[in-house]
Simulated scan of single mutants.
Amino acid sequence: MTQEDFRSLPLPAPTLTLQPDRGWVLINIETIVSTDPAPVTLRTDLLGYGVTVQATPTRWEYHFGDGHTLTTDSPGHPYPHHDTFHRYQQPGTYAITLTAQWTGRYQIDGSPIWRDINGTALTTTTSAPFTAEERTSRLVAGPCTATPTPPDC
């Protein structure tokens, strides 16, 4: 199986998880990103032979939409054990693009041997747009749930 054969398979786009995931983040505070590192198994036919392909994401590249990029071998972890994150410095509207690099191996039907595929394949996904906002804290006389004024209470 060649690299071109591998790249032509319907590998899934990576799953991109953001924390917080509420449509906005705070500037100068960590925006946590992670993805699912689970391998996928695909079936294909190559030159008349049935082939099982196991593809595993091994490297991820995050483009944060503000000119910053993070390339990592870690799929990331949720808060509080996170290791993949970004701090936006300026308010604005952003979207994060995640590219996963996949390695693979294959097994021809009837053979017990798994063979590595030379080369890699890439898949990409982009988050929905969100805003990075600057918020200030204020002392209030009562709970904001009772009287949500001012608007950022």
Rank of each mutant, 00 (worst) to 15 (best):
D45I: 10
A13L: 12
Q89I: 02
T126A: 10
R115Q: 14
A100C: 02
V53R: 07
A95G: 01
V33E: 10
A121L: 09
D5H: 04
L70C: 04
T72W: 02
L47F: 14
V40R: 07
P80C: 06
V51E: 02
I96T: 03
Y62D: 05
T52W: 12
L26A: 15
D83F: 08
L98T: 09
V140F: 08
R87P: 00
D66L: 04
E134W: 04
A128F: 02
R43N: 07
E134P: 00
D36W: 08
S8R: 15
G92V: 10
G65D: 03
P10I: 10
R87N: 11
S8V: 08
R7N: 14
P80K: 12
I32R: 08
G65W: 06
F130E: 05
R7Y: 00
Q90W: 02
L16W: 05
P14H: 13
I32N: 01
A121N: 07
T93W: 07
Q107S: 03
Y94H: 05
R22Y: 02
I117P: 01
T126D: 02
S111K: 02
G48A: 03
D116L: 15
I32E: 04
T97H: 12
A132V: 01
G23S: 14
L11Y: 01
D36R: 10
T123E: 00
W102C: 13
H63D: 07
L11F: 07
D36C: 13
P148G: 02
P91K: 09
T41K: 05
I113L: 08
L70F: 07
L18W: 06
Q54A: 07
T124D: 08
A146Y: 10
G76D: 14
G50T: 09
D5Q: 14
W24P: 03
G110L: 01
G104H: 00
D83W: 14
R7G: 13
Q54E: 15
I27K: 08
G142C: 08
T149G: 03
Q90H: 11
S137N: 03
P57N: 13
H63G: 03
H82F: 14
Y106A: 01
